[in-house]
Simulated scan of single mutants.
Amino acid sequence: MWAASCLASCCASCACEACKGVARGISRRSARIAYCGLFTLSLLLAWLLRDFAGPLLEKIPWINTFTHTPSKEWFGTQAVLRVSFGNFLFFAIFALLMIGVKNQSDQRDSWHHDGWMVKFILWCTLIILMFFLPNGVLNVYGQVSRFGSGLFLLVQVVILLDFTHNWNEAWVAKDEQFWYIALLVVSLFCYLASFVVSGFLFHWFTPTGHDCQLNLFFIITTLVLVLGFAIISLHPQVNGSLLPAAVIALYCTYICYSALSSEPHNYECNGLHNHVKAVSIGTLVMGMLTTLLSVVYSAVRAGSSTTFLSPPSSPRAGIPGFIPKISGLLRCFSKLLF
């Protein structure tokens, strides 16, 4: 028994040291991996608590302050907001601490790369503390996060533009007919997929016999933007290509679907109400993957390239052709509008 206890203790100690060694190795190579890992963990935690933490939150008096207990969905939303708020505070604290750090000689650079055990404890502590806050604070955060989520969608578009621009440049640089044809095929596929999905949106969210003008407005607006992106991308002043516009068109169509499918399942214009559970899970998984890929890509690009998301006045700025194309696109778009 004594030998088994010693062996178990040694194994636990070795496992702990191995984990510390891996964490140190990861932090030395790239703190971005660890930060993305914490972000991924927060997404999974929010998902689990949304579905399973409702009965527990109902028993917390400073959360369930109602005479009539709200629905299970309300408590699930509260769990997600509290995890999100704790995660936001964690990253905001380190973002503020890193202001002005330009090279590794700054002492604060070690705060960014090292101390992952302390960071993980701080991250857990902040999330736990959020469950002790009153509902009023979370309601304010929920309203502010609505605008933050809209801003993040715009950031996702910029990230997607950067990715497709690099993709397009890489295939064009090969200067072979095969790759030009491949660019055309991919672009046409994205446009075809966008129009097919739009057709399903008309079928699902504008059922006959119901007044669904708002849904119709969103779908038609998306189609107008899809066509507008195609026209602007081919404008001589932009000097662009169809691939970035096609990918953005498909992304906008997905965003439109995501918004319409989130309508209440008892809403008469929501034609997917009979499959609300499967649609909700599918939309959630797709949204999480899109968010995670955007964060990981931006972290990798921002860390490995000094030009990505740098201000135009910075000496580090200068993605060849990318910023000029965006500015040209905006000028053309303003001309079309005004």
Rank of each mutant, 00 (worst) to 15 (best):
C190S: 13
H265T: 13
F308W: 08
Y141A: 05
G100L: 00
A15R: 05
H275F: 12
K335S: 13
S241W: 03
S194E: 01
I232A: 06
L184F: 14
F131M: 03
K277W: 03
Y297A: 02
G282C: 02
K59H: 10
K119R: 11
V80E: 06
L242N: 03
F322I: 00
F94Y: 13
P55M: 12
R32F: 10
Y257R: 08
R32V: 11
C252Y: 09
T253I: 10
N239H: 09
F132L: 10
V158N: 12
G282A: 05
G287N: 07
A31R: 05
M98V: 03
A31S: 15
Q107T: 03
S110E: 15
I219G: 04
E169F: 02
V83E: 03
L293T: 02
S13E: 13
L97T: 10
W179D: 08
V197W: 02
L336K: 06
L234D: 12
A246F: 00
G37W: 02
N215T: 00
H235F: 07
T221S: 15
V22K: 02
A3D: 15
P320G: 11
S262H: 10
V197D: 03
I231M: 14
V238Q: 03
L122Y: 03
G209C: 04
A79E: 04
S145C: 12
L201F: 06
A53T: 02
V144E: 06
W171Q: 00
A249E: 05
Q104S: 09
I281A: 07
A173M: 07
C190G: 06
A15S: 13
I127L: 03
R24P: 01
I326K: 07
F90C: 06
T253L: 04
L250Y: 06
F147I: 09
I26K: 02
R82P: 00
G76C: 07
Y267R: 08
P312F: 09
P134T: 01
F229Y: 07
C14A: 12
